[in-house]
Write a protein that binds this DNA or RNA. Structure first.
Length: 272
DNA sequence: AGACAGGGGAGTG
DNA sequence: CACTCCCCTGTC
């Protein structure tokens, strides 16, 4: 078992904040599936125990090389953010694979986390390759081009999203993805939005979670409600919310979004 | 039991 | 813009 010291990092918050979905909790470890890898991790204090990937991979994946205190200082604009930051302390934006991220958030429209999770596990089992790890069977995420059978995509319970997934699978190959990775945020977002089933929100999720565009501010129903309640009153349009967020939170707006999102959802759950 | 919403998007008027 | 439908699952 390898260990790494991770300051200002919180594994459970990071994994529970709806960025990645193929996670299994087993035996005090989180088993994390991403692209064609599986690894496990657990945290005790500032110590992170892990196995299955290199130190370099883990550091990049969880942004452990980043000055997190600086990030927090940039988004800590007011009492609302102060509370969210206190609650979510150590939440990081994961650097994930753009392809898996795109398909994940295609599955997310009008859905919820458990169902997205099920869709992705199903797609992996139907189209991916089997992996043995710790005596258990896992599946890799299918590569671009492999998710090409509409019956099987439907069998993964993806519903009306099945047609989008199949089309995006045929449009995006390694080269196309590599081109998008190189683009600055506005152009990357535009190219993503040309794909069927991808609008503003999903394009922003992919930009933020897999393209290193930390200024992207995805506006979903939770964030809409939060922003309405905390900052803008009345009935702001999506564009208004996005513009406000860019101005107010600046180039790390995506981090602010993730803290607000996770905080508001967790507080909502606690009230229930 | 049946209606309804749950991290959107596209097509229509 | 505002409205509706898209599929499927868990919940009340």
């Amino acid at each position: 078992m390898k260990t790494i010291i991770a300051e200002d990092f919180n594994l459970p918050h990071t994994l529970a904040s709806g960025q990645i979905f193929r996670i299994i909790k087993h035996d005090n470890f989180f088993y994390i599936l991403t692209n064609d890898e599986v690894f496990k991790a657990k945290q005790q204090g500032n110590k992170l125990y892990f196995d299955g990937v290199s130190r370099k991979f883990l550091t990049n994946f969880f942004r452990l090389d980043e000055d997190h205190a600086f990030t927090i200082s940039r988004i800590n604009k007011d009492a609302h953010m102060e509370r969210a930051i206190a609650y979510c302390h150590g939440l990081r934006i994961i650097r994930q694979d753009p392809w898996e991220c795109t398909i994940s958030f295609l599955c997310s429209s009008a859905s919820n986390i458990p169902k997205i999770q099920m869709n992705l596990f199903n797609l992996s089992k139907l189209f991916g390759k089997k992996l043995e790890y710790d005596g258990m069977a896992f599946y890799t995420f299918p590569q671009p081009g492999k998710i090409n059978n509409i019956q099987k995509i439907r069998a993964a319970k993806t519903g009306f999203r099945a047609a989008y997934i199949k089309k995006v699978n045929s449009f995006l190959n390694e080269e196309a993805i590599a081109r998008i990775v190189e683009l600055p945020y506005p152009l990357a977002k535009q190219s993503l939005m040309r794909l069927p089933g991808i609008g503003e929100k999903i394009a922003d999720c992919v930009s933020l979670f897999s393209l290193d565009h930390l200024q992207a501010f995805p506006v979903d129903t939770w964030i809409r409600k939060s922003m309405q309640e905390l900052y803008l009153h009345g009935n702001p349009k999506e564009k208004e919310i996005a513009t406000f967020a860019q101005d107010y939170f600046g180039e790390l707006a995506g981090y602010a979004q993730q803290y607000l999102f996770h905080y508001m959802r967790m507080i909502g759950k606690e009230k229930k």
